[in-house]
Every structure is written in C-alpha cells, then in structure tokens.
Nucleic acid binder design. Structure first.
Lengths: 204, 204
DNA sequence: AAATTTGTTAACCAAATGGTTAAACCATAT
DNA sequence: ATATGGTTTAACCATTTGGTTAACAAATTT
C-alpha cells in the first residue's frame, strides 16, 4: 500500500484501521496489522491517535455517523409511512451493499461495551423515535394503517432490513445459497421487504 | 465459585468457558478468566481441552446444537405454515430470553470464521430449507398464501425473531426504552410477530 | 541559513497471554 | 501399605502485543 499525495497519513491510518477493526473487532485487531495495511510505522498510530482505544473510537464514531442518517430517513422525514418504508428499504439495502461490515461491527461493539451507547445518545443528531411515534399513532387513529405500536413497527423495519446482512453466513448455510445467489436475494429484497411490511399493516 | 459434587471439573470448565466466550468472544476471552470462573487452575483447561481453540469449539458446538433444533421446527415440522410461524415465534422468543447471549455469539463467530460453517453443514441434523421450500411453493400454488419465495419468507421469519435480541442495545437507544420496557416489548412480540408475518402473506 | 516544529523510523520495553512441566495429591486396585 | 493412574497445582516459558523512546528527516518559521 503506497501513499498517495491526496491522502495524508492520518487518513490512511483511519482507513486501514477501519478495515482491520471492522473485520476483526476491537479485540481481534492488531496495531501492527493496521500499521502494515497503512504502510507506515507502528509508532505513527500512537502519534496520531494516542492509543488503540482512541483509534478504535475514531473508527466507530465514523461508522456510526454513516448509519445514523439512514435511520433518520425513517424517523424524521416528512413523507408518509408507506413512502418511508419504501424509501428506507431500497436505500438502506443499497447502502449496506456498499458497507457490508458496518452493521455487524456496530452491533457487535455495542454489545461488548454497554456505556458506549451513552456517549452516542448525547449527540444531538442521534436517531430518536418520537416523531415517528406520533406519525404512526396518528395514522393508526385515522385508520390508514392497522393497529401497531411505533416501536414494534420500527423494530420490524430494522430487523427485516439489517438482519440479512448481519447473519449472512448463517442464512447462506440454511438456504443453501452461494454468494451470487445471495446477492440476488438481497437485490430482490429492495422491493420485497417494503411490500412485505406494507402488506402487513395496510387496512383492507 | 465452589465445586459441587454433582458437577465435575470438565463440566465446570465448559460452563465457565461458555459464560466468558459468549460475553467476550473468542478474541476477548482470557483463559485465566475462564479458570478463575471455574474455580480451578489454568493448567486444567489444557488438561481437559488441549488449547483455547478446542475449548472454544466445544462451547460453540454446544451453543449451536441448542439453536439448530429451534430452527428445525420451522423447516422440518409437519404443521401448516401458519402454525409453524405461530409456534416458532412464541417458542423462539421464550428460548432466547433464557439464552440471551446465544444468537449474538453464534452470528459473531460465524462472521469471523468463514470455514466454521462448513464443518457445521457436514452434520446430518444441520437445518435445511428444502422441505420448507416445497411446502411454501405448494401453499403459494394452491392460493393459500400470497406469492413469496421460501427463502425470503424464511429470512423474514428469522430476522423478525432474532434481530431484536442481537441488536438490543441499538434498539433500546433508538426507542428510548429501559430494560423493563424492553422486556415487555419482547414479550409482546411472541404474538405480535406471528400476526405481522401472517398478515403479510395471507390471501384476502 | 539557522532554529524550531512536525513527521517518521528502528529499536526497545513491560505486561499480558497461551501454553508447558514437573512435582504433588488422591482414589483405587493389588 | 504400596504401587498405579488419573487429577491438580505452582512455577515457569516463549511469544505476542500495546506502547515508548531517542534519534533522524523534512518542513516551516524566524
């Protein structure tokens, strides 16, 4: 890995760290491997990021700040619930195909580090369900969708979209699919999932 | 942790190892911590299980052999699809409430270790979608349920049931729920999820 | 151009960690 | 009681690993 002039050392480190941390997690990652991937001396990691924990946090916050806006399209957008579901599903799956390690990484490290989420919640732009809740409650009251709590609907939307990527090896094994077929299944889900959800909540 | 007479050393080790590995993963787990939790000398771990990898595999296979039969109730049971969905949803959520770390552990380690799944698939009782696929295709043909591929339906069932436990910290943060409320949400899902799925695939 | 700051490296270090060894312990068979 | 075999322990070891240091190089300031 050679240095290019438009990519400074700090960025290169962060990029190498992203790859290693997302593939191996905090505990499995090695500072030496990150240095090698970045094509620099190990001491540089400490020069720029002080220690492993801080480098990890830089990677994690970076990853999380990619994910959060995606969720905000469901939670804080002005479109109807139907539209939200359609948009989110299609966009999110495209997004994850570009960042396949991301959801797993975030979920994994959040599970290992309880107080991590606290720091994130302090952030103003941390996704929040309040607006979505009002919207769902209203559409339920007005008979536009079937009775369902906003929390459960939101969990279902997240589950149907995120889980297939998190559990990829498990699902590939159970369904006997190879990588190619799996990719096709995920492509199909861009519309399938939205229909599945909407079917479930639409009034007859 | 005292030894009880009906629990021999080997079992104690496995039990301690289960707790540590499931909480911290292969990389984060420490042999010394396992020994301490088991109340024995570290050398005993090697006496009974040779090395960390083998001890880990014992724990992993144990965990997986708890999960697999659960999935087989969806895939290889003789009941109707409706019944399967209802039974699986209710049973699975009860099951996971008893083993909260399990799905995360399995998913995590499977993602880290590509060839792990190969070994598992060699096992005769490894869950397989074939029978379920025939059933879904037939019910679709007969107009009993809406058109959907068995793979997608199976993925949806798994996603809706497993994801909420895997992503617990994330969901708790987004939905602003405490542990008590979260538990209630999961209880509710025992019936909610089945209804959600069935609503989505039933013909009108 | 001299001085100072910033970036980079090789060599080093202490602690942690998985694993080993040799001796001791203890139940049971002889 | 004593020899035997599995079980358990304390002490030890080699390697890995995150992190430091001191010297060097390259900009940047004066």
């Amino acid at each position: 890995m050679k240095k290019t002039k438009d990519e400074n050392t700090e960025e290169q480190i962060l990029n190498a760290a992203k790859n290693v941390f997302q593939a191996k997690g905090m505990d499995g990652a090695r500072m030496q491997e990150i240095a090698d991937k970045a094509g620099i001396n190990k001491a540089m990691l400490h020069y720029y990021y002080r220690n492993k924990q801080l480098l990890f946090e830089a990677v994690f916050n970076n990853a999380f700040s990619l994910l959060a806006p995606q969720l905000n399209t469901v939670l804080n957008d002005n479109s109807s619930i139907d539209e939200k579901i359609k948009n989110f599903t299609s966009n999110y799956i495209s997004f994850i195909i570009k960042h396949p390690y991301l959801p797993n990484f975030i979920i994994q490290e959040l599970n290992r580090n309880e107080d991590f989420i606290m720091k994130l919640k302090e952030n103003k732009s941390f996704p929040n369900i309040e607006k979505f809740k009002k919207q769902v409650d209203k559409e339920v009251r007005n008979g536009l969708i079937k009775s369902i709590s906003a929390e459960q609907l939101f969990i279902n939307i997240m589950a149907l979209n995120i889980f297939p990527f998190v559990a990829k090896p498990l699902i590939m094994a159970f369904t006997n699919t190879d990588n190619e077929h799996y990719k096709q299944l995920m492509e199909d889900r861009k519309t399938e999932v939205a229909n599945f959800i909407i079917n479930s909540i639409k009034v007859l």
